[in-house]
Structure formats: structure tokens, C-alpha cells
């Protein structure tokens, strides 16, 4: 965690975007049918209506209908389906970048 924060600090100092270095999670939502999460920590739980993904320092909560994890790779998770609610729960004392 320390290393990641350090890298984020340096990239900020260099004027780079925050996600350019240090494996900071990046979430891309395409319409309401696809969501890609880069650098997740782990897939916590997975059902058709409910996908919970743990990120460093927070948890991403996706709710919807007929959700399907298209790809589950060490550095990326791709979820497809009809999404109705996306929620980011921060843990106490942590923040990105």
C-alpha cells in the first residue's frame, strides 16, 4: 500500500494523471451494460443481481439484472449485464491518490 501511494505521489508531482502509475484502480463504465475495473484487489462475491469487488481501500458494489463476469483476469475485471446501481464504499482513513 505504501509503495502504491508513493508512486501516486510522484506521478502527481510530475504532472501526470493519477492513474498513470502505481496501479491505482480505474473504473470504466460503458453505457449501462458494461463496466471494466482495472487493478482490482479481488472479486468478493458474485451473483446474478449483485457483484462486489474489493479495491484497495474501498469496495465497489454493482447491482443489476443478469450480471455476468465476462473476464476475470489478474489486472482487469469485465462485468456485463443490465446495471441499475453502482456504489463505491470507502473504508475509513483511505483515499485514492
Amino acid at each position: 500500500m505504501k509503495k502504491r501511494e508513493g508512486a501516486a505521489f510522484i506521478s502527481k508531482l510530475a504532472g501526470l494523471p493519477a492513474d498513470a502509475a502505481g496501479g491505482v484502480p480505474r473504473i470504466t463504465i460503458i453505457g449501462s451494460t458494461q463496466i471494466a475495473i482495472q487493478y482490482p484487489e479481488r472479486l468478493e462475491q458474485f451473483t446474478e443481481q449483485d457483484v462486489r469487488i474489493q479495491l484497495p481501500g474501498s469496495t465497489l458494489h454493482i447491482k443489476g439484472k443478469s450480471l455476468e463476469v465476462k473476464e476475470l483476469m489478474p489486472e482487469e475485471i469485465l462485468v456485463e449485464g443490465t446495471m441499475t446501481n453502482i456504489q463505491l464504499e470507502m473504508k475509513q482513513g483511505h483515499r485514492f491518490g
Partner: peptide
């Protein structure tokens, strides 16, 4: 529902879950 997450943690690549 927890198994894909555990396998992911071990470094496996899963498709079409």
C-alpha cells in the same frame, strides 16, 4: 459465488462467469 473470487486471488484467469 465466492469461488471465482478465490481463484482470481490465486492468479487464475476466468472467462464467462
Amino acid at each position: 459465488s465466492l469461488l471465482p473470487g478465490r481463484l482470481h486471488e490465486r492468479g487464475a484467469i476466468l472467462v464467462h462467469i
